[in-house]
Every structure is written in C-alpha cells, then in structure tokens.
Deep mutational scan, measured.
Amino acid sequence: MSIQHFRVALIPFFAAFCLPVFAHPETLVKVKDAEDQLGARVGYIELDLNSGKILESFRPEERFPMMSTFKVLLCGAVLSRVDAGQEQLGRRIHYSQNDLVKYSPVTEKHLTDGMTVRELCSAAITMSDNTAANLLLTTIGGPKELTAFLHNMGDHVTRLDRWEPELNEAIPNDERDTTMPAAMATTLRKLLTGELLTLASRQQLIDWMEADKVAGPLLRSALPAGWFIADKSGASERGSRGIIAALGPDGKPSRIVVIYTTGSQATMDERNRQIAEIGASLIKHW
C-alpha cells in the first residue's frame, strides 16, 4: 500500500482517536478583511474532515458561482459510474476541433488520438481543461445529471445548469451553476471519506486533486513544508474566484476548506493574494 493509499484508508480510523479540534476566530477576521479589500462577498467554511463538524464559517449558506470547482464533483460522478460498472477509466473518447472550447490546454493536443476517461478527469482537475469537462459531462448525461447525482448524495443546493464556458457567467442573483460553501464542503467530504465511492475511487479523486497544477498562487502558496493539500480552484466573470481543498499537517488531510468570492473589481492577482492570506491565517491558527 502506497503512502497515498495509506492516508485515505486511515481517514475513518483516525476519527475515533483524534484530539479535539478548536476553532480560531482570527481567520474570520481575515475573511472579513478580504471582503473589505476586494469590495466583494466572500464565503468561507472550515470543516473537520473526520467528524464533519463546522469549525468556522462566514456566509456559509449564501450562493456563489461554482466556477471550475464543479470539476471535482463531476469526476466524482464519473467515478461513481465506474464503480457501478457503467463506465471505464480506460475508455478512449474521440472528439473533433468543433468540440474544443476556450481554455483547453490538454485536449487541444489530442485531437488525433483522443483521450481516456482517466486522462480527461486528470486534465479537468489538474489543468482545469474546459473541453475535458464538457466531454465528461456528456458521458454522464449533461449538467442536469450532475445535479441529480448531487441530489442523490443529499446535496439539494449545488446545481450545474450549463456547459463550459457559459457556466462562468456569474450573474448576480442567478442561481444557475452555483453552490453554497456549507453544501460544497459537505459534499466534498462525502466524496473523499464516505461510502458513495469505493476506496480506490476515493483515492483516485484525491490523487487528481493533489496533482492540481493551476492553484499555486492560492492556499498552496501559504503551505508550510510537510503539509498535505488536494485542491481545485476556479475563476469566472465578475471578479469571481474560489477554491475547495482538503489539507492538513503531517502529510495527511484533516480539514476541508472552501473559499468563494464574487462581485469584485480587483485584479486576479489581488483576488489570489487575499485567498492566500486567508490560508496563511488558517495555518497560523491551526
């Protein structure tokens, strides 16, 4: 058993032996400061991975655009179909130039040979490839079927209504393609630790998130040596930015963190910096 498999397999085991986890309101002070700095709403939640207890939250039940963070949920739905014998990670999917949409750094290189379902999930999560996400959405029946999958998990909040890139429109008060921090954190925890997916599929999902290559300026920039993080970021119109993550010290995840912001006029660099500073406060007061 690899170190990674050891880590995921023991998450339920550690729940019975973990020390009490204490919240630190200092992080919420930073979240509120980020709102002031960005001139935008910020949603935040910090969840204990083992118990599911909410440690801190700010606007946990307000809607925010999901942006590309939905791609983790999408690959969770794909893995659920794999577990049920309805899909194979090794199945190759062929597509054409007409299928390519904006920001497809991986799929645009494989027009001649296509990509496997496994490769598409990797591209969608680690590189946020939009065509990969659309191709995967097609395999499960489209955005409405992803919403149905989430409903069956008990998440009646999170919804996907459109495809890439239209889902990134982020119109104020538009509930399409949105979630709430509390709903996203709970759903992510179920995917990573619950019985919905097999152990192998849970491991695969967290491996893809751990290999994320496009979230460096966010929480990863504040991470001390030896800490673990598996994450997925997102960005969209109207100053929207977000990240969902499982992270913790000693090389294993122990908390879920979800951060969303929307409605800012700030630059992408400034949005990144504010999220990184929230992460730094979280780690300092861990």
Rank of each mutant, 00 (worst) to 15 (best):
residue 6 F to Y: 15
residue 7 R to W: 09
residue 9 A to I: 12
residue 10 L to T: 14
residue 11 I to Y: 15
residue 11 I to M: 14
residue 12 P to S: 15
residue 16 A to H: 13
residue 19 L to Y: 15
residue 22 F to C: 13
residue 22 F to A: 12
residue 24 H to A: 10
residue 24 H to Y: 06
residue 35 E to V: 02
residue 37 Q to E: 11
residue 38 L to G: 07
residue 38 L to R: 04
residue 38 L to C: 06
residue 39 G to D: 10
residue 40 A to R: 03
residue 41 R to D: 05
residue 43 G to P: 00
residue 44 Y to E: 00
residue 47 L to A: 07
residue 47 L to T: 07
residue 47 L to E: 05
residue 50 N to H: 12
residue 52 G to A: 06
residue 53 K to G: 08
residue 56 E to R: 06
residue 57 S to C: 09
residue 57 S to G: 08
residue 58 F to Y: 15
residue 61 E to S: 13
residue 63 R to C: 03
residue 65 P to V: 04
residue 73 L to Q: 01
residue 74 L to R: 02
residue 74 L to Q: 00
residue 77 A to C: 13
residue 78 V to G: 00
residue 79 L to S: 02
residue 80 S to K: 14
residue 81 R to S: 07
residue 82 V to I: 10
residue 85 G to A: 09
residue 85 G to M: 09
residue 86 Q to A: 10
residue 87 E to P: 03
residue 88 Q to I: 12
residue 88 Q to Y: 15
residue 90 G to V: 10
residue 90 G to L: 11
residue 90 G to Q: 13
residue 91 R to I: 02
residue 93 I to L: 14
residue 93 I to Q: 04
residue 93 I to E: 03
residue 94 H to F: 15
residue 96 S to N: 15
residue 97 Q to K: 15
residue 100 L to F: 12
residue 108 E to S: 15
residue 111 L to F: 11
residue 111 L to H: 10
residue 113 D to M: 09
residue 122 S to T: 11
residue 129 D to R: 01
residue 130 N to D: 02
residue 135 L to N: 00
residue 136 L to R: 01
residue 136 L to A: 03
residue 137 L to S: 01
residue 138 T to N: 14
residue 138 T to G: 15
residue 138 T to P: 02
residue 143 P to K: 00
residue 143 P to L: 01
residue 146 L to H: 05
residue 148 A to T: 15
residue 150 L to S: 05
residue 151 H to L: 11
residue 152 N to F: 11
residue 152 N to H: 12
residue 153 M to N: 09
residue 153 M to D: 11
residue 154 G to A: 15
residue 155 D to E: 00
residue 158 T to L: 02
residue 160 L to Y: 00
residue 160 L to R: 01
residue 162 R to K: 04
residue 163 W to N: 07
residue 164 E to N: 02
residue 167 L to H: 02
residue 169 E to L: 09
residue 170 A to H: 14
residue 171 I to G: 14
residue 172 P to G: 10
residue 172 P to N: 11
residue 172 P to M: 11
residue 174 D to L: 03
residue 174 D to A: 04
residue 176 R to D: 05
residue 177 D to A: 01
residue 177 D to V: 01
residue 177 D to E: 01
residue 178 T to W: 01
residue 178 T to C: 05
residue 179 T to R: 01
residue 181 P to A: 04
residue 193 T to A: 14
residue 198 T to Q: 11
residue 199 L to R: 14
residue 200 A to W: 06
residue 201 S to C: 06
residue 202 R to P: 15
residue 203 Q to A: 11
residue 205 L to I: 08
residue 213 K to S: 10
residue 217 P to T: 10
residue 218 L to M: 07
residue 218 L to N: 00
residue 221 S to L: 08
residue 222 A to G: 09
residue 223 L to W: 02
residue 223 L to Q: 03
residue 224 P to L: 02
residue 224 P to R: 04
residue 226 G to C: 05
residue 233 S to T: 12
residue 236 S to V: 05
residue 238 R to M: 13
residue 239 G to F: 05
residue 239 G to C: 06
residue 241 R to K: 04
residue 241 R to Y: 06
residue 243 I to H: 01
residue 245 A to P: 01
residue 245 A to K: 03
residue 247 L to W: 06
residue 250 D to G: 14
residue 251 G to T: 06
residue 251 G to V: 06
residue 251 G to S: 09
residue 252 K to D: 07
residue 253 P to N: 06
residue 254 S to T: 15
residue 255 R to C: 03
residue 257 V to L: 06
residue 263 G to A: 12
residue 264 S to T: 13
residue 264 S to G: 15
residue 268 M to H: 06
residue 268 M to W: 08
residue 272 N to D: 09
residue 276 A to S: 09
residue 276 A to G: 07
residue 280 A to G: 09
residue 280 A to V: 11
residue 286 W to V: 00
